[in-house]
Amino acid sequence: MTVLLSFYDWGQYKGIVPELTLKNWREMVADDYFYTVYMRTFRIAVLVTLASIVVGVPEAYILNRMSPVWRSVSLLAILGPLLVSVVARTLGWALLFGSTGVVNQGLMKIGLISSPLPFMFTETGVVVTLTHVLVPFMVLAVWAALQRLDPQVENAAGSLGASPWTAWRRVVLPQIIPGMLSGSVVVFALAASAFASPAIIGGRRLKVAATLAYDEFLNTLNWPLGAAVATLLLVALVAIIVGSNRLIERRYAQVFE
Score class of each variant (00 low, 15 high):
Ala145Ser: 04
Ser85Pro: 13
Phe7Thr: 15
Leu149Gln: 04
Ile176Thr: 00
Leu206Ile: 12
Met28Cys: 13
Arg43Cys: 14
Ser99Gly: 12
Trp223Tyr: 14
Thr124Asp: 12
Val3Leu: 08
Gln254Ile: 13
Asn245Ile: 08
Leu63Tyr: 10
Arg169Val: 15
Leu82Ser: 08
Asn155Tyr: 12
Val139Gly: 01
Tyr38Met: 07
Val37Ser: 09
Leu181Met: 10
Leu107Trp: 10
Trp93Ser: 05
Gly98Asn: 08
Arg205Thr: 15
Phe188Trp: 02
Leu140Cys: 02
Ile53Leu: 11
Ala196Asn: 00
Val57Leu: 07
Glu154Gly: 03
Ala227Asp: 09
Pro81Asn: 01
Phe217Cys: 10
Leu107Asp: 13
Met66Ile: 07
Gly161Trp: 05
Val142Ile: 04
Thr49Glu: 14
Leu83Gln: 13
Val242Tyr: 07
Ile110Lys: 00
Thr124Gly: 09
Glu123Leu: 07
Asp31Leu: 08
Leu63Gly: 11
Leu221Asp: 09
Ala210Cys: 04
Leu237Glu: 11
Pro164Phe: 13
Ala141Pro: 00
Leu233Ser: 03
Met28Phe: 15
Leu96Arg: 06
Gly101Thr: 13
Gly202Cys: 10
Gly203Ala: 10
Ala253Trp: 11
Arg71Asp: 08
Gly101His: 04
Val103Asn: 01
Trp143Tyr: 02
Gly56Ile: 03
Val102Trp: 05
Leu234Asn: 11
Ile200Asn: 00
Phe188Gly: 02
Leu212His: 00
Phe188Ala: 06
Pro116Cys: 04
Leu160Val: 00
Asp9Cys: 13
Ala51Phe: 07
Pro81His: 08
Ala227Met: 08
Arg65Lys: 09
Leu63Phe: 09
Arg43Trp: 11
Leu221Ser: 05
Tyr252Phe: 15
Leu82Cys: 11
Lys23His: 13
Ser197Lys: 00
Pro136Gln: 01
Gly161Gln: 08
Ala145Met: 02
Val185Thr: 13
Leu5Glu: 11
Glu59Asp: 03
Gly183His: 01
Met120Ala: 12
Gln105Tyr: 06
Arg65Asn: 11
Ala191Trp: 03
Arg40His: 15
Leu221Tyr: 04
Ile62Val: 11
Leu5Arg: 03
Ala213Phe: 04
Glu154Ser: 02
Ser184Asp: 06
Asn24Arg: 05
Val69Asp: 12
Pro68Leu: 01
Asn222Lys: 14
Ala239Leu: 10
Leu247Met: 15
Leu237Ile: 05
Val55Ala: 00
Ile53Met: 07
Thr49Phe: 10
Arg71Gln: 14
Leu95Ser: 02
Ile240Gln: 05
Ile177Glu: 10
Val171Ser: 06
Val126Glu: 06
Gln175Arg: 09
Val54Ala: 06
Gly125Ala: 14
Leu237Asn: 06
Asp31Phe: 04
Leu76Ser: 10
Trp25Phe: 07
Arg148Val: 10
Thr166Asp: 15
Val133Ile: 04
Arg148His: 07
Ser74Pro: 09
Leu75Asp: 01
Leu160Ile: 00
Leu20Asn: 06
Arg251Lys: 14
Gly243Thr: 03
Ala199Arg: 03
